Amino acid sequence: MTTPTPVVFIHGLWLHATSWEPWIDLFQKEGYDASAPGWPGDPDTVEEARANPESIADHGIDAVVDHYASIIKDLPVAPILIGHSFGGMIAQKLLGQNLAAAAVAIDAAQIKGVLPLPLSALRATLPVFKNPANKHRAVSLTAEQFRYAFGNALSAEESDALYERWTIPAPGKPLFEAAAANFNPHSPAKVDTANELRGPLLLMTGGKDHTVPEAVTRATLKQYRHSEAVTDILDFPDRGHSLTIDGRWREVADTALDWLRRQEL
Score class of each variant (00 low, 15 high):
Lys173Ala: 02
Lys173Arg: 15
Lys173Ser: 01
Lys173Glu: 03
Lys173Trp: 04
Pro174Cys: 07
Leu175Asp: 07
Leu175Trp: 13
Phe176Trp: 09
Phe176Gln: 05
Phe176Ser: 06
Phe176Asn: 06
Phe176Lys: 01
Phe176Thr: 11
Glu177Asp: 04
Glu177Ala: 02
Ala178Met: 11
Ala178Arg: 01
Ala179Leu: 13
Ala179Glu: 12
Ala180Ser: 05
Ala180Phe: 01
Ala180Asn: 05
Ala181Thr: 10
Ala181Asp: 08
Ala181Tyr: 02
Asn182Arg: 02
Phe183Val: 00
Asn184Ile: 05
Asn184Val: 06
Pro185His: 02
Pro185Lys: 06
Pro185Cys: 05
Pro185Asp: 12
Pro185Asn: 12
His186Ala: 08
His186Met: 04
His186Val: 05
His186Lys: 11
His186Arg: 07
Ser187Arg: 04
Ser187Val: 10
Ser187Met: 04
Pro188Leu: 06
Pro188Ser: 09
Pro188Trp: 05
Pro188Met: 06
Ala189Ile: 10
Lys190Ile: 03
Lys190Thr: 11
Lys190Ser: 09
Lys190Met: 04
Lys190Trp: 02
Lys190Tyr: 00
Val191Met: 05
Val191Cys: 03
Asp192Ala: 14
Asp192Ser: 14
Asp192Ile: 12
Asp192His: 14
Thr193Asn: 08
Thr193Asp: 13
Ala194Asn: 15
Ala194Arg: 14
Ala194Cys: 12
Ala194Phe: 06
Ala194Ser: 15
Asn195Cys: 15
Asn195Lys: 13
Asn195Glu: 14
Glu196Ala: 15
Glu196Leu: 15
Leu197Thr: 15
Arg198Asn: 14
Gly199Cys: 12
Pro200Tyr: 05
Leu201Ile: 12
Leu202Gln: 09
Leu202Pro: 09
Met204Cys: 15
Met204Phe: 01
Met204Trp: 00
Thr205Val: 12
Thr205Ser: 14
Thr205Glu: 04
Thr205Met: 07
Gly207Asp: 10
Gly207Thr: 09
Gly207Gln: 07
Gly207Pro: 05
Gly207His: 04
Lys208Cys: 11
Asp209Arg: 02
Asp209Leu: 10
Asp209His: 08
Asp209Asn: 15
Asp209Thr: 08
His210Ser: 13
His210Thr: 12
Thr211His: 10
Thr211Ala: 15
Thr211Phe: 13
Thr211Arg: 09
Val212Phe: 06
Val212Gln: 00
Val212Asp: 12
Val212Asn: 05
Val212Trp: 00
Pro213Thr: 11
Glu214Trp: 02
Glu214Ile: 11
Ala215Asn: 12
Val216Tyr: 04
Val216Leu: 09
Val216His: 03
Val216Phe: 06
Val216Gly: 00
Thr217Asn: 06
Thr217Leu: 02
Thr217Asp: 06
Arg218Asn: 13
Arg218Gly: 08
Arg218Met: 12
Ala219Met: 09
Ala219Ile: 03
Ala219His: 09
Ala219Gly: 07
Ala219Asn: 10
Ala219Lys: 08
Ala219Thr: 03
Thr220Leu: 10
Thr220Asp: 01
Thr220Cys: 02
Leu221Asp: 10
Leu221Ser: 07
Leu221Asn: 08
Leu221Gln: 14
Lys222Ala: 13
